[in-house]
């Protein structure tokens, strides 16, 4: 005799009310650096091992597509301010508009791991945890790209996975959108472009949106998926002070 439904009901509602309300539980995001009008811009810039920080006339700008959350610029005398938001999605530069009204509450996603380290995968797996529950937003994960509207790709796109990503993209019906998740998908991240990694999803399929982060937390991923249907807004990749 199984009482699992009872155990489930006993726990009550755990789901966040984001995006209709702000979600500020501590630890829900690792946070990320923001640009600042910093006097010692050169010293701050040197803290970054991946070149995400650039000195500009007004201070330090942050290139979010290169930040891998190494936390080197978080504390110390030259630290940048870090902010706990989740609206991380940036436009990848294609002119494709958000998917139409019909997809707003029925968006089917095919996830492909193209070399992700496990952190991105774990965050993506948590999307269907009760706390985040992507289904309440009308987003569903499908087993086949045949049924998918969105291709969600994580990892630095290893050479061995190129065929799979390409095939999945061509197997999808129109209209289709591609979302690259994590800094690795954008430019290879710490792995960069090398003999084993293509380093950048847009080199093999056209990409519509990026979700930067290393890894992007579940709410940032949800933000990106909602941006596909125009329910949230993208920001720019380069943050100027």
């Amino acid at each position: 005799m199984s009482f699992w439904p009872y155990f489930g009901l006993k726990r009550g509602i755990k789901t966040t009310s984001w995006p209709s309300a702000k979600e500020q539980s501590p630890g829900i995001t690792p946070g990320r650096p923001r640009s600042a009008s910093n006097a010692s811009s050169n010293a701050t810039t040197q803290l970054c091992p991946t070149g995400a920080l650039h000195p500009v006339e007004t201070g330090v700008s942050v290139d979010l597509t290169h930040c891998i959350h190494c936390q080197r610029c978080r504390q110390g005398p030259h630290a940048l301010p870090w902010e706990d938001d989740v609206a991380w999605t940036v436009n990848a530069g294609t002119a494709l508009s958000p998917l139409g009204y019909r997809f707003r509450r029925s968006l089917h996603v095919r996830y492909i791991d193209a070399g992700a380290c496990g952190a991105c995968i774990n965050e993506a797996r948590l999307l269907d945890a009760p706390v985040y529950n992507l289904h309440r937003l009308g987003i569903f994960i499908t087993a086949s790209p045949r049924d998918a509207d969105v291709l969600l790709v994580a990892g630095p796109i290893t050479n061995a996975m190129c065929t799979a990503v390409r095939k999945a993209y061509s197997a999808m019906p129109h209209p289709k959108r591609v979302v690259g998740m994590g800094v690795c998908a954008i430019n290879g991240g710490i792995f960069g472009e090398n003999f084993a990694c293509v380093g950048g999803l847009q080199k093999i399929v056209p990409v519509d949106l990026w979700i930067p982060g290393c890894p992007p937390p579940p709410l940032a991923i949800l933000h990106g998926l909602l941006a596909v249907v125009g329910r949230t807004q993208c920001t720019t990749a380069e943050e100027l002070p």
Partner: peptide, 14 residues
């Protein structure tokens, strides 16, 4: 209305 011809989805095998 809309015709599309897609490749066979073989789970990404070569």
């Amino acid at each position: 209305r809309r015709s599309s011809r897609n490749i066979l989805w073989d789970a990404g095998l070569a």
